[in-house]
Nucleic acid binder design. Sequence first.
DNA 1: ACCACTTATC
DNA 2: GATAAGTGGT
Lengths: 259, 259
Amino acid sequence: MLEARLEQANLLKKVVEAIKDLVQDCNFECNDSGVGLQAMDNSHVALVSMLLKADSFSPFRCDRNIALGINLVSLQKVLRAAQDKDILTLKAEDSPDVVNLVFESSDSDRISEYDIKLMDIDQEHLGIPDTDYAASITLPSAELQRICRDLSALSESVNIECTKEGVKFGCTGDIGSGSVTLRQHTNVEKEDQNVDIQLSEPVSLTFSLKYLVNFCKASGLSSRVKLCLSTDVPLMVEYSLANNSYLRFYLAPKIGDEE
Amino acid sequence: MLEARLEQANLLKKVVEAIKDLVQDCNFECNDSGVGLQAMDNSHVALVSMLLKADSFSPFRCDRNIALGINLVSLQKVLRAAQDKDILTLKAEDSPDVVNLVFESSDSDRISEYDIKLMDIDQEHLGIPDTDYAASITLPSAELQRICRDLSALSESVNIECTKEGVKFGCTGDIGSGSVTLRQHTNVEKEDQNVDIQLSEPVSLTFSLKYLVNFCKASGLSSRVKLCLSTDVPLMVEYSLANNSYLRFYLAPKIGDEE
DNA sequence: ACCACTTATC
DNA sequence: GATAAGTGGT
């Protein structure tokens, strides 16, 4: 059986909000190391990979590997019932029909409990190769969100060009063109605001803004976001969570004359 | 003639907002004890009963019984002109064609005045019997609102089950099931947050969530709400206002296999 | 109290 | 599909 207690129900709520537009149904893979999720979006352009390590829960118990096939719209409906500060416990049997979610208010005077029916989902297991990226950029997540939102007013696509000095997000559309350039900068006082660039080779790649805007819904999960790029390889967008847990998005670059 | 001055125009505004989805046109019954309103919704499942006692106005003058038949959509349009802190005076002749609303800003520097045409409404007078309810639950109005909203994501109906220990709101729908349990609890420090249960007999009844969600629009009128239940009798939902004035909703239970 | 998002309507 | 209102979060 699975029994996993998450101090902040909000964490799962934000994760689901961030991915539900990309993926409708998916398996939450539970085993003794934690709860993981991998799924491609319908058009197979983007991939979501989440891992909530066992250490992110307390306590965490999972005797056997269980795949919980959940409709994310249903899950979101239930998670909206979570109040700020609520504690969430996920429970499932070893061969479950339902997953059980229990929300406790911190004073325990309010308990709400939901069962969500599970579904069988064909799990094409997705191997994600470890990649040595040519460029890794870590920046404030709110900044990336703002950039993507601003540029999406002009164009469907953004070109991300990274050099040792900085990173430039540029686009061209019918009404004109725009770009935002961030220089690498470090300030020990305001670490959250830093822009860190690790570069082995300059890169320039183009991506769909619609997807990036979508990924940025996860900004609430972490003040920082890491972008990893290499030529002809999907972009990785990573939100690191406590206890080495993470939410990652992958997005294939646009090629050649695609817009 | 009627002349009734209400220090907070907002009070009437909130009342109308809370009931206008249930009732289109209704009589405001004015007499020397105050202003009352009773109306059933179109499907005759729910009933609204409001009483603003004469003491809630200052001054209050009403020489004869007058029924003001008002279209609530029109009334709401006019009430939206009320600013925060505005003082409202209602005026009508003894056999009126119109009701006159005057808004004064608290500093009296701004006066606005509206006339709304009245309509003849057949008044089936509704006798509401006094009932000794088997269960009375008083809880924070925001909490009830939240519960009804959360559960309405899962189902059309909610079962309210009350015992000495607590009250459980439960429902079952296509995607799964959910329940919220509140234990009776009292804290002198935060009286507004208390859950008080008066029980002569346990009850379990099922109601339409659509209506309950609607009633909860009145949450802004009072931090507390009282639910009164007895088997096979309509639920009463009461928002108490100052000076023994009140806004009450009644809702017939669903019976048997209805959903 | 403001801003942003989500949902409902045209 | 776009726009507008209502609701929820910061």
